[in-house]
């Protein structure tokens, strides 16, 4: 059974059908790409998957659990974590604290315990620090744990967002244009990181991207959206040769 199954998903804003009869099937451990011209509805799909928008109709199933109508925080608990197109970090907190906020549910203790520093507080904080540093280490940022997250260079802010999303221990990771604003070297490094994350955490990843090198380099399958509708989907190489896709997106 597919890990993520989306059937007949539609939403309209006013008279505009932003996403129309969207279908998607992602197997466990797959690296899946979602591409399309600007305004095609890619981020809307992400917002539908994470419960930011409620779909007009359709089914979203993660591991057999119906996610339609659930709140964003519950969907996160079910196992979908995401990053954002325009980076959204907790800018006034340290890099370490950003990841620790992602670990919020994994190492719980009550507010009372926190205020009065009961033994559980020390136990949980210690475990949390270790886990957070471990995650940061994966991204080569453990030495920057004490930096204010807004002071990080752009590429590392993107990585920190991924680390924070991973901290919530998701089954499916959604990356919204992870390579936006990166130079070719950084993009290449990012590709390695994404592959590494997939292998190390046994993660399933769905990503939106405009950088064709990245998409053709790491995605096993892709879906192309145009005006809210699926133009083509399937194996990356085949889809990118599809004449209609070339016409709509890549240019003739």
């Amino acid at each position: 059974m597919a890990l993520l199954e989306v059937r007949n998903l539609s939403i309209s804003f006013g008279g505009l059908k932003a996403v129309d009869s969207f279908e998607l099937q992602i197997e466990k451990n797959q690296l899946y790409g979602l591409i399309g011209p600007n305004g095609a509805g890619k981020t809307t799909v992400f917002n539908l998957l994470t419960g930011v928008y409620k779909p007009d109709e359709g089914y979203i199933g993660l591991d057999g659990v119906d996610l339609v109508g659930k709140r964003t925080i519950d969907i996160n608990q079910e196992g979908i974590a995401r990053t954002f197109q325009n980076i959204r970090l907790f800018g006034q907190q340290t890099v370490l604290d950003n990841v620790k906020i992602g670990l919020h549910h994994e190492y719980p203790y009550s507010t009372f315990t926190g205020i009065f520093r009961l033994p559980r507080y020390h136990k949980m904080e210690k475990a949390m620090n270790e886990k957070a540093l471990e995650l940061l280490d994966v991204f080569g940022m453990a030495d920057k744990a004490e930096y204010l997250s807004s002071n990080l260079p752009y590429g590392q802010q993107r990585k920190l967002e991924i680390a924070r999303a991973l901290a919530t221990n998701p089954k499916l990771l959604l990356l919204d244009e992870p390579a936006a604003g990166m130079n070719p070297n950084e993009t290449k490094e990012l590709m390695d990181t994404i592959r590494f994350v997939r292998d190390k955490f046994d993660m399933t990843i769905l990503l939106i991207e405009h950088d064709m090198n990245l998409v053709s380099g790491i995605c096993e399958e892709i879906t192309v959206l145009n005006f809210g509708q699926i133009l083509a989907s399937g194996e990356t190489k085949t889809v990118l040769k599809n004449p209609e896709v070339i016409k709509a997106y890549l240019g003739e």
Binding site: V52, T72, F84, R88, L89, F90, I101, G102
Partner: peptide
């Protein structure tokens, strides 16, 4: 960042 906070549960 309210939206990001929501996204991590």
């Amino acid at each position: 960042n309210r939206i990001a906070a929501e996204s991590v549960g």
